[in-house]
Simulated scan of single mutants.
Amino acid sequence: MERTAAGDDAGLGPRVAVLRRLRGMSLRALAAASGVSSSFLSQLENGRTNASVASLRKIAAGLGVSPAQLLDDSAVHTRGVLRAADRPRLQLEGAEKFVVALPPLGNLEVYAGRFRPGGSTGPEAYAHGDSQEILVVTAGEIVLELGGERYEMRVDDSIEFLSSTPHRVRNTSDADAAVLWINSPPTPDEAPHGPPATG
């Protein structure tokens, strides 16, 4: 008889559900990624069945975690640490943009940017989607060109606008600067122009 994982920890089903939702996955998507049925996953999440060790390994792989992480209560509230060195990045003009929130995205899309003196998001203002966007200056000073207006912003300043408004960030100072971009909801990948995704 195969040893069951859920019998060792009755919280497995709810943890699977939380991790699945954190990754923006439907039952069907996790079933496809794991090689188990949607009905089995539904029963597991609702505590109506146990998972074998083999099923536990498949589900963990589908969620992108280790079986130990799947069984560990302390990791349920997070998708895990994204190390600075591992962040996907986009090279801009004298600047870099870093992914902070990895796909699949839920309600937020977050990027960090570093600008050397003279760096910018590009030669032209751009727009993407129609989301609520917040720009926060985390270091130095930048100029935000937004819908024909110019905003000089310093560390800890923030501004909120619609991502459909053409915008551009420039570092006109002689020191490095850094920003965070936060969009809700995430903007479509098929941005018509400008840097991919957001900014």
Rank of each mutant, 00 (worst) to 15 (best):
E2C: 09
R3H: 04
T4L: 07
T4E: 10
T4P: 13
G7K: 11
A10W: 03
A17Q: 14
A17P: 01
R20L: 07
G24M: 02
S26Y: 00
L27I: 11
L27A: 03
R28N: 05
A29C: 02
L30C: 14
A33I: 06
S34T: 08
S34V: 10
G35H: 08
V36L: 06
V36E: 05
S37E: 02
S39W: 08
S39V: 11
F40I: 12
L41I: 04
L44Q: 01
E45R: 08
G47M: 03
G47Q: 10
G47K: 02
G47R: 11
T49A: 14
T49F: 07
N50W: 09
V53L: 15
V53H: 06
A54T: 14
A54M: 11
S55Q: 12
I59E: 03
G62Y: 09
G62N: 04
L63Y: 07
G64E: 02
V65D: 06
P67M: 12
P67G: 09
P67A: 04
Q69K: 02
L70V: 06
D72H: 04
D72Q: 07
D73W: 08
D73K: 10
A75D: 08
V76G: 08
V76M: 01
V76S: 05
G80M: 05
V81L: 14
L82P: 13
A84S: 15
A85D: 11
D86P: 13
L90T: 13
Q91N: 15
E93N: 13
A95G: 08
A95E: 11
A95M: 12
V99W: 02
V100F: 13
V100R: 13
L102Q: 12
P103D: 06
P104F: 13
P104K: 15
N107M: 01
N107H: 04
L108F: 15
V110K: 03
V110M: 15
V110Q: 01
A112Y: 02
R114L: 11
G118Q: 03
G119R: 10
G122D: 00
G122L: 00
G122W: 07
P123W: 00
E124M: 09
E124S: 00
A125L: 12
D130I: 09
D130R: 14
D130C: 09
D130M: 00
Q132H: 12
E133T: 09
I134H: 03
I134V: 15
I134A: 15
L135P: 01
T138I: 15
I142C: 12
V143C: 12
L144P: 01
L144A: 00
E145K: 13
E145P: 02
G147T: 03
G148T: 15
R150Y: 10
E152T: 12
R154F: 00
V155R: 06
I159M: 08
E160Y: 05
L162E: 07
L162W: 02
S163F: 10
S163W: 08
S164W: 03
S164N: 14
T165Q: 08
H167A: 03
N171W: 00
N171P: 07
T172W: 01
T172A: 11
S173P: 09
A175N: 04
A178T: 13
I182Q: 12
N183K: 00
N183E: 05
P186G: 05
P186K: 13
P186E: 07
T187C: 13
P188R: 09
P188S: 10
A191Q: 04
A191V: 10
P192F: 05
H193W: 10
G194T: 00
A197D: 14
A197V: 09
T198W: 09
T198D: 00
